[in-house]
Design a protein around this nucleic acid. Sequence first.
DNA 1: ATCAATTATTAAAGAAGTTTAATAAGTCTT
DNA 2: AAGACTTATTAAACTTCTTTAATAATTGAT
Lengths: 340, 340
Amino acid sequence: MKEKLATPKSLKGAMMRGIRTTLLKLGSATKVELSETLGISFPTISKFLSEMESEGEILLAGLDDSSGGRRAKRYIYNPEYMLGLAIFLEKTETNYTIFNCVGESKEDGKAESVLMDSRLEALTRCIEGLLARFPKICSIAIGVPGSVDHGRVFYIPGYEQLQDFDLKGYYEDRFSVPVIVENDMNAAVLGFHHNGGMKEKQSLIYLYSGQNGPGAGIMVNGDIVRGRSFFSGEVSFVPLYDERNFREALEKEGESKKLQMAGEIEVDAVSRLVASFTAMINPHTIIFCKDEVEDAFLEKIAAASAAYIPSEHLPELIVSDWKKDYLFGLQHLGLNLMLS
Amino acid sequence: MKEKLATPKSLKGAMMRGIRTTLLKLGSATKVELSETLGISFPTISKFLSEMESEGEILLAGLDDSSGGRRAKRYIYNPEYMLGLAIFLEKTETNYTIFNCVGESKEDGKAESVLMDSRLEALTRCIEGLLARFPKICSIAIGVPGSVDHGRVFYIPGYEQLQDFDLKGYYEDRFSVPVIVENDMNAAVLGFHHNGGMKEKQSLIYLYSGQNGPGAGIMVNGDIVRGRSFFSGEVSFVPLYDERNFREALEKEGESKKLQMAGEIEVDAVSRLVASFTAMINPHTIIFCKDEVEDAFLEKIAAASAAYIPSEHLPELIVSDWKKDYLFGLQHLGLNLMLS
DNA sequence: ATCAATTATTAAAGAAGTTTAATAAGTCTT
DNA sequence: AAGACTTATTAAACTTCTTTAATAATTGAT
């Protein structure tokens, strides 16, 4: 029954967070700039800033050119003050990145797939080792190919050792570092959203054709859509034709499930899916994986879907680098955790 | 570039709002109860409460039974302190309700459809008259059968006098009362959501078959979905069959466009739509209009859609009173406006 | 009936951010 | 090079909410 109401106790944390994020967003700032963008009075900014400077969290970058009077001090956030760890677990391998607050990578690495391990020891030891070598790690973001509910891995076919396991709680207790766990496609759509210059509160669909058939990561109004039973984005099941759903339309007998996005059949199926999304949630953008489709394919889709929907309502179609977006999404989640 | 950060200046307003809403939600409360549910200290609650009591906004209901010590004073919100006006413009008529803070109707009324008027004078005079008779009206919520963007009527086929008109701005300037304008289906889905006991952040679809073909009001994670070009919910266009989209599947040659939801053709079309929604956004509930479908129809839909999607992921199917939900949604929007 | 125990309310002290005024540091002009 | 002007920073007074202590009202037991 607790209402979420801004109480002065929580103000300090909010202010620190505000200072951190605006300083990182702007790259550098003077006290006046911070005060104005945050709507907090100059003396308060001053107090927090000097405290954070003495902690080493903030650095003095130098003096501004004068605009007629005393030169203002310009501060930057110390990007090395905190580090984040992003790990993504895939079928065949496990990748990780150590990154600083401006998203620069400090170390990338690859390990045996921990999903093959029947227990979690491989992953645990991997994290343990990294934390020992980089004691400044202040957040861990883990991406998994399965459904996640508040840090608990909910449904992850093929990797039963993680099924119904509270990954977040387990590692937070173990390492005393905040942890966030997210589904791979959700992380990717988040990453794409926050990469492209912060056009707020968009609706996006990230389409992919994975090993287990096609799927989608869905964001509506800037929020990840998980659905009632974590089934959202399972577009395989959309009934597009009299006798076939999306997955059946793409599958050809005898061929591998890995799709080749090229032929007319695929074009029509995907354009119907695009039309369906448009008529239902009218997203801003639909994103395809760079390694799965060609630009020419997108043009065909755009033309074909216009047969179903007036073209002014159709989304922008874009190809993007899935792995980059995924990584960026995990970094973003980790950064959010760190800066709070 | 202004960040939204909790600053002490905005605290007073937030507290008043908190007191109002919890007092209305709980029906009545003591100072301690308010302090605990809001997380605000007792003396602060006390100060605001005595101020609001002297204004007449809050009433003393009496004393609690003693729990062993001094008896606590119990306060209630004065539901008559502020009134709200909800108007919904329909093709053939215009309905309005004056309601108080607990949602009780003070006066219901009906007028000629102002949409038939080539200008807005009929509506303006109607509001003017009501404001004169009920000076306590503190908010106006207007429902329109068209797309709305921040109070501006964006797309309203058939009523060109409202096309691209800033209804909210116009009446706020004219009457100095906060105004909110919302699309009819969006208001209905909002109303349904807030009626059923506040299970937070759900995803809902409100399906209807209006005069201009079927459509839907869509809520995802508790937010209304408007989409890139305000096209969301135009489910007519969903391509469900080889040769027909949803609307075409429902239309029979020579018959009126008003649907009869009964036959097998309709059952299959709607269950395909349900399946599509489930595979895309996996909503908690899909709501049908009570006067458009029978309970038996819902059972058929549930059975038929299970052919497309594993049934554990399917949404709950419900019939509801559209007009009630619509009205309740408008009231909710108006109340939100008043209590801030 | 009176006193101890319990609980609501009020009052005073403390903490934190804002506003306003004062001071320090630098620029530009003559 | 000195003084007037502009701007950043610091200091002090003020507002507001919280915490802690004190007081008032009520109940139950002796």
